[in-house]
Design a binder for these strands. Sequence first.
DNA 1: TTTATATATCGCAATATTACGATAATAATA
DNA 2: TATTATTATCGTAATATTGCGATATATAAA
Lengths: 107, 107
Amino acid sequence: MGITKSQIFDQRQNELAQFFKVLGHPARIAILQHISTQNSCICNDLVDEIGLAQATISQHLKELKSIGLLKGEIEGKSMCYCIDLDRWNELQESLNSFFNKTKHNCC
Amino acid sequence: MGITKSQIFDQRQNELAQFFKVLGHPARIAILQHISTQNSCICNDLVDEIGLAQATISQHLKELKSIGLLKGEIEGKSMCYCIDLDRWNELQESLNSFFNKTKHNCC
DNA sequence: TTTATATATCGCAATATTACGATAATAATA
DNA sequence: TATTATTATCGTAATATTGCGATATATAAA
C-alpha cells in the first residue's frame, strides 16, 4: 500500500492534513524561520544557511508554495521568496479552529 | 535517500516538525475529531467509523500517542483512548508561538 | 555573444509511510 | 477451562518522501 485513502475523508480533513504535512519537515520549518528573519529572501542564502543541496531546497520551497504559504517574485537573476501573510494568518486561524473545536476531555 | 537529515536542525525545529507530521494524515485528524465528539472513546468504534482496518487504526493511534496527544487506559476488555487536554493545549500554544514568531512580510 | 549566476526540473537510490491480513496477547464471559 | 471480544504487533506489498547529481532554463554581466 503506502497510499493514503483520501476518498474516505472529507475535504476539510484532507486539506487540514495536507497543511500539517507540509509543515511536517524540519527543513521547511527552518526555511520559514530563516525567511522571516530577513528583509530580502533569496533561495541561494537558504542553501548555505540550511545545509541541504540546492535541488533539495528548491523542492521544499515548491511544497511550501503548494499550500500558498510562500509567494515568489523574480528579482533580477534571483528569486525573492516571501511569506504570504494573508495565507499565513488564514492557516493559523484554520488550525486554531481545529484545535478549539476538537479539544475534549473524557477520562 | 528518503532519510530526513535531522542532525542539521535544532531540537525545537525537529520537535515542531514531528508534531506537524503526526497531524499530517487525514485519518489521524478524523480520529481526533471522532474522539472529541464522544464521552467514551473506544478503538473499536473507530474502525467502523473511519473505515480503515483495525491494524491500521491501531497504528495511527500509536502515532498520536507518540506525541502525547492521546492517553489510553484499559477499561475492561477494551481501551479508553482520550485526548490529553494538557498536552493538547501545550501543543496549540507551541504552534501559535511558531506562527506568531515566524510571520513576516518583505514583499 | 560568451560567461557566470541562480533556480527549477529530471531521474534515481535509499528510506519512510500507509494499509492490511495474520496472529499474538489480554481480559471478560460462558 | 474454553470461548469470545478487543487491541497490539508482525510481516509484507505498494506507494510516497527525501536528497542529490546532472542538466535545463533564464537573466545579468563581461
